[in-house]
Amino acid sequence: MQALGARIRGGDLGALPVISGLIVIWGVFQALNPVFLSSTNLVNLTMQCASIGTIALGIVLVLLLGEIDLSVGSVSGLAGAVLAVTFVQAGWPLVFALLAALAAGAAVGALYGLLFTRFGLPSFVITLAGLLGVLGAQLWVLGETGSINLPFDSWIVQFAQQMFLPPWLSYVLVALTVTAYALSLRRRARRRAAADLVSQSGVEISIRTGLLLVVLSGATWYLNLSRGVGVMFVFFLALVVAAHLVLSRTRWGRAVYAVGGSVEAARRAGIRVERIYLSVFTLCTTLAAVGGILAAARLAAANQSSGTGDINLNAIAAAVIGGVSLFGGRGTAFAALLGVIVIQSISSGLTLLNLDSSVRFVVTGVVLVLAVIVDSLSRRTRAAVGRA
């Protein structure tokens, strides 16, 4: 606990501001409308988080490099259009249609990476142009029909709309998750102790594990009072955990943080900076394509408005609100999860209150500004501690 206190005093707030803000948001909306925290509404909220959260996960990767991608909404719409055209109109098997949609997303990101590394164009300019170009490609793929419905009995639509875990399986996943978390903490503590570094005590590990068990078990029990835990939401959680493990446990992940912290220092350390940029831009648009597929499946349709509207803004806002620094080098994959829950909670709460969408934009904007202020203040605190 002393180490945690030292981190907070040093400006490393972690997820504390986001969790605190989420508690306040939930408390306010529950007081204004008791339906907000009902199990039925929370199940709907989790299902709404999956597609935007997956897109936000790609934004997290790009922001860790200190760059941006403004076209993820358009890429998600293009992926949905490719899926619908190949699966419904061309009659391709679903697996090939999904691969085609993912390939379209990956190709866009690879193009961004090449333009960025070969010509030095700013990512803002590249992806802004991509937003327009990909939107045009989406309209061209859809053709004159403009809207294509996906069969309700297809596996992908069932996956996004009606697949929920049996209660016993959801509790098994909770037990496995908590066990893996406890083993990870103990293994990390042993490694740090062997290196004569400050490590977490057994008591702190037990407390953290116990809290996670209580939170996950309680949330699972409450969601099971309604339809349960959606398979699509579990898929999103699996993507977040996988991204976290890759970022924290692999050489590639450490290279991403190094490049985001200082490009020149990373290059002098022998990191192939160009490959890191290329891979991250490709992963970002691939995840945007996955999000677009999930969105199309949930709506059982792809149309000209898919990926437009506030998709871009919500995905970027979710990553920033979740705690990823706009300056690069700081943040985790869990920022996508926390941020999208905040975004969708605001949207769901205001919808239940029958307020206009203009209010949602204002509230989301205010929350985004507060998140950036917290990031800026924490950076100043860390800088002051470092000088001291």
Results as ranks from 00 to 15, higher is better:
P34S: 15
P34F: 14
V35Y: 13
V35C: 00
F36V: 04
L37V: 09
L37S: 12
L37M: 15
L37T: 10
S38D: 09
S39V: 08
T40H: 11
T40V: 14
N41H: 13
N41V: 08
L42C: 05
V43S: 13
N44L: 13
N44Y: 09
N44H: 13
L45G: 01
T46Q: 11
T46Y: 15
M47V: 11
M47S: 12
M47E: 15
Q48S: 14
C49P: 03
A50L: 09
S51T: 04
S51W: 14
G53I: 06
G53T: 11
G53C: 08
G53S: 10
G53K: 14
T54K: 05
T54R: 06
I55G: 11
A56C: 01
A56W: 03
L57W: 03
L57T: 00
G58F: 10
I59T: 14
V60Q: 04
V60C: 06
L61I: 10
L63W: 10
L63H: 13
L64E: 08
L64R: 02
L64P: 06
L64V: 02
L64M: 05
G66D: 14
G66L: 05
G66F: 08
E67N: 07
E67K: 06
E67H: 04
I68K: 10
I68M: 09
D69Q: 10
D69K: 06
L70Y: 02
L70R: 05
S71D: 09
S71W: 07
G73S: 03
G73W: 04
S74C: 14
S74M: 12
V75L: 13
S76I: 04
S76L: 06
G77I: 03
G77L: 02
G77R: 04
L78W: 12
L78P: 14
A79H: 02
G80H: 02
A81E: 01
V82S: 05
L83M: 15
A84T: 10
A84K: 13
V85L: 01
V85T: 13
T86V: 10
T86S: 15
T86I: 04
V88P: 02
V88L: 01
Q89W: 12
A90F: 11
A90H: 11
A90N: 11
W92L: 07
W92C: 00
W92Y: 02
P93D: 12
P93T: 06
L94H: 04
L94G: 05
V95T: 15
F96R: 09
A97K: 12
A97C: 10
L98Y: 00
L98D: 05
L98C: 00
L98Q: 01
L99K: 01
A100W: 00
A101F: 02
A101G: 13
A101W: 02
L102N: 04
L102S: 06
L102P: 07
A103N: 00
A103W: 05
A104E: 11
G105W: 00
G105D: 06
A106D: 09
A106V: 09
